[in-house]
Structures are given as C-alpha cells and as structure tokens.
C-alpha cells in the first residue's frame, strides 16, 4: 500500500522523477509516451464500448445491459489509471538504467475482454427471447 501511495505522489510531483538518474535518449521517452497513448486509446475504446452497449442494445434486459456496460466502463477506467502508473514506472526505470517493469495487466485485460465477448455471444444467441 505504501508503494502505491508513493507512486501516486510521484504523479503529482513531476520534478521528483527528474531528480534521480540520467535523462534517457529522447527517443526512448517518446516511445514510452506512445505506449502510454496506445493504452489511453484502449481505455477510450473500452469506454466507447460501454456507451455503445447501453445505446445500441435497447432490447436487452436492463440488468444484463447495465452489467455489460459497467464491466466495460470499469475496465476502461482501470486501463487509463494503469497507463499513467506504467508510464511513470517505465520513465523511472529508464532514468535509473534498470530493466523495464513487467506486469500481469495485459493478461488480465485480455481475460476480461474475452469474458465480455463470450457474454455478448450468449446474450445475442439466447437473450432476445427473454425480453
């Protein structure tokens, strides 16, 4: 928990990242920034999916629709916050000359997306009659 608090404090104190280590080649920083943006786009796509489920599947029972939409929205929020934290940790690792951090998050996210996709298939196949 302490580690998380320290990490969050770093988000708000940009100069503290620059205090330690050496500034890496600007190309590495830009590559890190593009990875961050790719994660933000993933988050935006998940959130857009949440809106779309709610707007374009009006025939669904409210509970199923809200559940699917909330699942997509929650994973979008997680994805966006995690994008910042991963970007900060990569930036720090590059400054210190350490290995880049590894993470379980991509595997978790792909599991969530797979579960939502299977749920969608089930809903489309069997959901219409129940309404």
């Amino acid at each position: 928990m302490n580690k998380i608090a320290q990490g969050v404090r770093l988000w708000f104190a940009p100069q503290r990242i620059r205090e330690e280590g050496d500034t890496p080649d600007y190309r590495f920083s830009l590559a890190n920034e593009r990875t961050f943006l790719a994660w933000i786009r993933t988050a935006l796509a998940l959130i857009g999916g949440g809106f779309a489920v709610d707007q374009f599947l009006p025939e669904l029972v409210w509970g199923v629709r809200a559940g699917l939409a909330l699942g997509l929205l929650a994973s979008g929020v997680l994805c966006a916050l995690r994008a910042v934290s991963h970007w900060v940790r990569c930036e720090q690792a590059m400054r210190r000359g350490e290995d880049l951090p590894v993470s379980r998050f991509p595997a978790l996210l792909s599991l969530v997306v797979a579960v939502v996709a299977v749920a969608m298939v089930v809903v489309v196949l069997f959901g219409w009659e129940g309404v």
Binding site: L10, W11, F12, A13, P14, I17, T23, Y26, S29, L30, N32, E33, F36, A83, V84, W87, V88, E91
Partner: peptide, 9 residues
C-alpha cells in the same frame, strides 16, 4: 522533452 506527469495524469 519527455512528457510531464501532469499532462499524462
């Protein structure tokens, strides 16, 4: 320069 954390946040 590299992106400022405030912008990312």
């Amino acid at each position: 320069e590299s992106l400022a954390p405030r912008g990312a946040l």
